[in-house]
Structures are given as structure tokens and as C-alpha cells.
Amino acid sequence: MENILCLFVNSMEVETREIARGLRRRDPDLLDELIGRYQYRLPRYLWTLTGSREAAEDLFQETWIRVLEKGHQYNPHWRFEAWLFSIARNLAIDLLRRRQPESLEALLHPGDEAGAQDWPDRQSSTPFESVAAGEQAEHVQGVLRRLPPEAREVLVLRFQEDMDLHEIAEVVKAPLSTVKSRLYRGLETFRNLLEEEMA
């Protein structure tokens, strides 16, 4: 068991070293591959932060431009995902500040302003996706919208992106204890709201 774990850790280290080397060289093939690899997860995370499909897609592009420009700063001891998501997060925060500097909180709480943000809904998806998503997904999206942004963010990173607590702390630039308390509170609120919705 330990050998398997060791092998897994080693292969991850080899991969991050290769990524770091490729980023230093600004290798376009490597970037193409990484863009493809994160084409669903990164926009989903950005959408969680901004609540806007258009902003999520713009920020997705912008994040990869930043990865190209700042690639030499990537430390292979970090997991690439955590570094990538922290770049995306900084850009999202910059965007939110630029858009409504007087009310960042309001933008971070899309549920407070009906219609201000275009959270994915059944109309905006393709017919196939709408059918596949179903009633439950709509409820879940509605519930997620009602969570405070910091709780929504850590829940997504922990349970959708499967990041560990240390990685989440790196991404959100918060102490581990803060991440834990946000997760506990977020999970509790999400569970209670979901139960209410389902009842």
C-alpha cells in the first residue's frame, strides 16, 4: 500500500516538474493540453465565483494568458491545480472590483440581485443538457446561489474539485482553520437549505 502511495506521489512530482519546465519554456503544446484538461473545471469554478457565464469564459481565457506570462513563477512543489485556481481567483476578484467597486459584496452575492447575474439555467443550456440536468440540478443551483460566496467557493473546491484542505487554503489565501470553519458552516447551511427545498 505504501509503495503504491509512494509511486503515486512520485508520478505527481514528475508531472508537476514537467509542467514547471514546460511553463518556463512557454511550451504551447503543453498549454494546449492543460487548457483542454481544465476546460470544464476551471470555468465551473469561475462561474461559482462570479455568477456569470460570460465573465467565467472571459476569465478562463485571461487565466491562461496569465499562466503563460507568469509560468516561470510556478513552483513544482505545489500542485498545479492549486496554483491555477489561485490565479483564476485573483483575476475574478479584480474583475468584480472593477465592475462594481462600490459594492463588491453585492456582486459576490448574486442571489441578492435578481437577474443581475446569469447563473446557468435551463434556458441557457443546450436541450440535451437541460434534460440531463433535470429538476434536481435546478434546485441545487438555486440553493448554492443562496450561500455566502466564501462558503460556496470552499464547498466547490472541496467537493467538486476534490482539493484537500491545505490546497484550498492556498487557493483562497486563508488560514486552514478559516477554511475548515467555512466548510463546516457552508455544508450545514447547504444541507439545511437543500432539505428545505426538497421537502
Binding site: 470555468p43 465551473r44 434536481q136 464547498l155 467538486q160 437543500l194
Partner: peptide, 14 residues
């Protein structure tokens, strides 16, 4: 149920 629901959220990409 809550975690399963959270994992079902999909975001369709252009």
C-alpha cells in the same frame, strides 16, 4: 444527499 447534489451541478462550456 447534499454532497451528491453538489457533485451533480454541471456547467456547460461554450
Amino acid at each position: 444527499r447534499a454532497l451528491q447534489a453538489l457533485r451533480t451541478i454541471s456547467f456547460s462550456v461554450n
